[in-house]
Every structure is written in C-alpha cells, then in structure tokens.
Design a protein around this nucleic acid. Structure first.
Length: 353
DNA sequence: AACGCGGGGCT
DNA sequence: AGCCCAGCGTT
C-alpha cells in the first residue's frame, strides 16, 4: 500500500481527540501551532484552553496588553513565541481587518511563523499541499527510509522537506500532515516505539535492520553554559519587595525577576553579605540577610544551567518603587521564580522577624 | 551556518 | 546528575 494510504488509515483509527481538531478556523489553528512548537500536547493543551477562553478571537488577543499575554504564557517557555503571537495578532486585526493570509507564501511572512507553521496552517485550513516537517516527521521518515543525514543540518533540512513533499497526498494534505505527525508522536516515538503493532514494520528499513535506536541522526549540541544566579528577595518595612523587568536580549525577555546579581563562581555567605551591603538599594539599612536555599537550585535550560540562590534581604526602610508582596502573583515570571514565590511565604517571614 | 531560546520527562 | 524532546529569529 502507498505510504500516504497507510498513514492516513492508521490516523483514522488512532488519532487523539484534541480541541484544535474540531475546527479549521485559521485563528485557532495558528494559535495551537504556535503553542505546540517544541512543546508536547500534554504540556500545551491547558495553555490552548486558557488562550481560547481568554481570547476567543484574534481581535481579543490583539486588544490585550503584552504583559497579559506573557502572564498567560507563563511556564510554557520560549517566550518570544508569546511576544510574536501578540505582535502578529495586532497585525492581522489592524492591518488585515482580522483576515488571515490564506496561503503558505503569505503565512510565512508572519512573525513567529516559519516553514513548519506556514505549511501546517496552509494545509489544514486552506487545503494547500505543503508538507510539514517537524520533529515527528524527521523521525518517521529517517527510520522508514533509513536516512542517515543529520536532521539538524541544512542538508537534512532540505532532504526531508523534499521527501515529505513527494509523499504528501495532494488530494488530502490536511489529513496526511496531521497523520504523519500523530504517528510520530504516539507510535513511532523517540524511545520504545511500538514496532510490533506498526503497519509499516514489514517495509521500515530501520526496523528491519535493527537501527531504530540509531535514527534519526542528530549533530551534537553545543556544551551547556553554567551560570551562577543570586536573586535578592527584598523585604521592606512596608511589606513590599522588588521585581524588575528583564530588558534587552537573552533569556526571559520582558519577564519579571527579583534583582539579580550574577557571579563568576558560586558565592559564599560572607563574601555575598559584603556585596549586598554595597548594593544601592540596601546601603547601610540591612537588617538581616538569610540564604533561602543552602544548596543551589539547578534550573536547566537546554543551553545553559542556572545555579541559583535566593537571598532574603530585609531592609530597614520603606521602598521607593517596590511592589506589594500580596500582588506578586500578577507578574509574569520565569518558572524558576514562580516556584520560589509559590513556596516562600512573605507574610510569615514578616511576622517571624 | 551557527547560535540562542524553556521547561518537562526519563533514567 | 546527564540524557532526551526541538521551530523560529537573529547574527
């Protein structure tokens, strides 16, 4: 049987019921595709529900503030997706009167929409036969055809896109694209794929040559950087603390954090007290400083490891531009900060001292 | 072409 | 602790 026949048949018998599969409205498909970039369905699903509930149309999303969008996105990571999502919503609502581009070429021009996402929207919403190539497709094709070209090379990029484009069912591109991705996600999984019940197991090259665990081939990632983060959790007499917005390039752009002192090496308590005493916010008003976590909290990003300490710094004055600790929940913060806020009880600390 | 960008799951 | 998952924008 033809590849596309087999995969679409498998899909009709095995697909999951997911909310974005109930619609062809480009707004909802676009939203789901942005959320699902580098993100598994289980992780993205609750965010899709939140976003469609808060912003039922592109106009609702466009009229929101960026901080509201980031707050709703909090915890999902890759925050440029949220900033681009919001910018594109404003563009579509205002410049295009709410009408989405209806073809691959024009979709590709949108901020945050690359080859994969443009192909997905064009095929699902507008029946255009442009093949999607996401991580699932790389895995399925490299195994089935026994292809050793590294998937994260420009050569592999080209090769797999071309192959997928040759295989796509031009009569039904929406189903084909979703079928091959779903197949990769739930059956032809990275680890322990279900080869024994696979409809392709008689013709899959990787399976028949016992090379499942070797494919797909990937170029090694660069070594992770290690950084030492010291967050200053200020407590002022007026029960306020300080959050700062991260500006410029780098991680967590436009999210909030406690004032940060990054050091070359892990800090010792005595050295760090000297540093904090000289801090412009503290000057000579330091009452007490407590290290919240004796052992560094290691927050792992795919490209850097953050060895993190939270320092509780009580200062004997009122704050200038602090925020009430009772309102700290209103700020979009990285999950590393969010977890701390969830566990640390500002009120009990205030009364305890 | 190379690099930066999150967070979660598994072992 | 170290391994896996990975689209898009920038440089």
């Amino acid at each position: 049987m033809k590849f596309s026949k087999t995969i679409t048949l498998w899909y009709s018998n095995n697909k999951r019921e997911l909310p974005w599969r109930q619609t062809k409205d480009p707004y909802y498909i676009w939203l789901s595709e942005i959320i699902l970039q580098q993100t598994q369905v289980v992780q993205g699903l609750p965010y899709y529900v939140k976003f469609t509930h808060s912003f039922p149309s592109v106009f609702h999303l466009a009229n929101a503030g960026e901080s509201d969008v980031l707050k709703l996105w909090q915890g999902l990571g890759y925050y440029s997706r949220a900033r681009n999502l919001h910018a594109t919503a404003k563009y579509i609502a205002n410049a295009l009167n709410g009408k989405f581009p209806n073809n691959y070429k024009d979709l590709l021009k949108l901020k945050g929409v690359g080859d994969y996402t443009a192909s997905a929207i064009a095929s699902i919403c507008f029946n255009e036969a442009t093949a999607v190539v996401d991580g699932n497709v790389y895995r399925v094709l490299s195994r089935y055809f026994g292809i050793d070209t590294p998937i994260n090379s420009s050569q592999g990029n080209k090769e797999f896109k071309q192959l997928a484009q040759e295989l796509i069912d031009v009569k039904n591109p929406a189903t084909f694209n979703q079928a091959i991705m779903e197949f990769g996600a739930t059956q032809c999984k990275p680890q322990n794929p279900d080869c024994n019940i696979c409809p392709f197991n008689s013709s899959c090259i990787a399976f028949n040559k016992n090379r499942i665990s070797e494919l797909p081939v990937k170029l090694k990632a660069a070594k992770v950087k290690k950084r030492n983060f010291n967050f200053l959790v200020f407590i002022f007499n007026d029960k306020k603390t300080i959050l700062e917005k991260r500006e410029g390039k780098g991680i967590w752009q436009n999210l909030y954090q406690f004032p940060l002192i990054e050091t070359e090496k892990a800090t010792t308590f005595d050295d760090f007290v000297k540093l904090v005493k000289k801090h412009p916010i503290v000057k000579d008003k330091l009452v007490e400083m407590v290290l919240y976590n004796e052992d560094s909290i290691v927050h792992k990003l795919s490209h850097q490891h953050l060895y993190t300490k939270f320092w509780i710094v009580q200062v004997d004055r009122t704050s200038k531009n602090g925020i009430l600790t009772s309102e700290i929940q209103n700020y979009a913060v990285p999950i590393l900060i969010g977890n701390f806020i969830e566990r640390f009880n500002f009120d009990s600390f205030n009364t305890f001292n």
